[in-house]
Structures are given as structure tokens and as C-alpha cells.
Design a protein around this nucleic acid. Structure first.
Length: 262
DNA sequence: CTAGATGTTAAGGT
DNA sequence: CACCTTAACATCTA
């Protein structure tokens, strides 16, 4: 689920389901997922009786503000949120559960436990500690050129480097490079200024489009790679069979027909 | 049974 | 130094 568009959808979901209601009960089911300075018990006592008033997102992290601090959720590869109606049991893989005074609840599910739960007092401080770069939807062109443009490796690994630009992972880096027709193994040094600017525009455009589509692959535009990525399909533009390659330790999918520039 | 899956990080190699 | 790859984390599915 969880690259920038997915987390943005989860943030809006949190807003719709969980703001402005006092927390009656907090349940930590997988204590090892509680990271940072507070123990799971401390996290529970911090949150009990609190009310969430607003949310923020930076990269792949969701921040929810309560009276005395911020709850931070990171979703790893399999994390998601589920709103619970009154009296309804927590679903499978629930690692953390908020039960509101109204009886409804919010479950944080994470099958593979690769995510994290934190309580912090400063969002800025947390971003700094984690070493995150600017959010991919907020970074400006000159900053983008300064960091991404001057990095030495492949375009794909630069896009996925959270310290340079926060929020892009394996799936959306594939989509962005597909949209600008850059082969996944092309190195940043091989891009001219025009190409770099097009890449910047594509980052924005792809992420915004994905958010509009509710981060649902089946609702992406037809000329997108994402819905057929991994499906052994052919390119929506030129019909060439989509191929996979290992780049930066991940499987990247691309069209060998369109994404040719060496 | 095995390989791989949206993330992150440490370790080892070129 | 800068970059790359691999493995590990925990769990499920093809």
C-alpha cells in the first residue's frame, strides 16, 4: 500500500474517521512495532483520553496531532488503516488499535510488521532525525536539481532515496520513469537539463494523478504502467512486452520499447 | 517447497 | 569516497 499517494489517502481516511473524538482505549498488540523513546505502555498512557485535531503527511509518514504531541505511523510494505464500527472486532493483523469514546475505532494493520508507530513532540525534529528530504509534492525545482540532479547513481535509486526526496518507492518510481520514457538503468548524469525538468514535472503529475485515483491502480489513466505492472502485460503506448530488471535491489518494471535512451 | 512482495537499514563488495 | 548488491526483518501468497 504505502508510498506517498497511498499514505495521503490514508491520511484523508484518518481525517474522516478519527478526528475530534476522545480516545477511550488504546491497545498495542505488537509492542515491537512501537519505535522511538516511548515504550508501548508509555505510548498507551500518552494517548489515552487525548483527541486528535489534525493530520500531516511527509513522504511516507503520517502524523496525527493530539493535545500533547503527535502520533506517527509508518506503514512499511503492508500497512493500512481500518475504521471499525461500534462493537466490531479488530481485523486480522491489527497491531495497534484506538477505540474512541463513541465506540468506533481505528485499527492499524500491518501484516509484515515492517512499519512503525511513534509518539513525538516535534514533526520537524522527527523529519530531521529520520534524515528525510523534502516531500515529493513540496520540493521545488531548484532543490530537486540540486539533490537529485547532482547524485551519481541511477535515476530510479535517486527517486527512491528518501533523504533526497521523500515519498517515492518502487512502484511510483517505475511509473514516473515510464511517463518520461527513461530507462530504469539510466544514470542521473546522463540527463540533460530539459530531461531533468521533465522528470520533476512527472514526479508531481504522477503523484497527483495517483492521489486523484485514490491510489487505486485500476483507476489510473489508461496510459499508465501501474495497472499492468507485473501482470506480464504489454505497453499501453507501443505494445512491447513489459520487462523486469533488478535495480537498487528492487524489481523495476519498464517498457523496453519506449524507455530506450540507454 | 520456493521465491518474491509497495520499506528500511546494516553489511560487504567494486 | 560513492555507489551497488545482498540480506534481514515477519508473513502470506503464487
Amino acid at each position: 500500500m504505502p508510498e506517498l499517494p497511498d499514505v495521503e489517502i490514508l491520511r484523508r481516511y484518518f481525517d474522516r474517521t478519527s478526528l475530534n473524538q476522545p480516545v477511550a482505549e488504546v491497545l498495542v498488540k505488537s509492542g515491537e512495532m512501537v519505535k522511538g523513546v516511548f515504550s508501548p505502555e508509555e505510548l498507551v498512557s500518552q494517548l489515552k483520553g487525548q483527541t486528535f485535531s489534525s493530520t500531516l503527511r511527509h513522504g511516507k509518514y503520517l502524523f496525527a496531532e493530539f493535545d500533547a504531541g503527535w502520533l506517527v505511523l509508518h506503514f512499511g510494505m503492508t500497512g493500512t488503516l481500518a475504521h471499525l464500527e461500534e462493537g466490531k472486532e479488530a481485523p486480522e493483523h491489527t497491531r495497534f488499535l484506538l477505540r474512541f469514546r463513541s465506540g468506533t475505532g481505528l485499527a492499524y494493520q500491518c501484516q509484515r510488521k515492517l512499519g512503525g508507530i511513534y509518539v513525538i513532540d516535534s514533526v520537524e525534529g522527527f523529519i530531521k532525525e529520520q534524515g528525510l528530504g523534502p516531500d515529493a509534492l513540496q520540493i521545488e525545482l531548484d532543490e530537486f536539481k540540486k539533490t537529485i540532479g547532482h547524485s551519481g547513481g541511477s535515476v530510479k535509486s535517486a527517486l527512491m532515496n528518501q533523504a533526497m526526496i521523500a515519498g517515492i518507492g518502487n512502484i511510483y518510481s517505475d511509473e514516473i520513469m515510464y511517463q518520461v520514457k527513461i530507462h530504469p538503468k539510466v544514470r542521473v548524469a546522463g540527463l540533460d537539463d530539459t530531461k531533468l525538468e521533465k522528470l520533476y514535472e512527472a514526479v508531481r503529475h504522477v503523484l497527483e494523478t495517483a492521489i486523484e485515483a485514490g491510489a487505486d491502480p485500476s483507476r489510473m489513466p489508461e496510459h499508465y504502467l501501474l495497472p499492468i505492472r507485473e501482470k506480464d502485460g504489454s505497453c499501453p503506448r507501443c505494445g512491447t512486452r513489459i520487462e523486469a530488471a533488478k535495480i537498487s535491489g528492487r524489481t523495476g518494471y519498464y517498457c523496453p520499447g519506449c524507455q530506450v535512451n540507454q
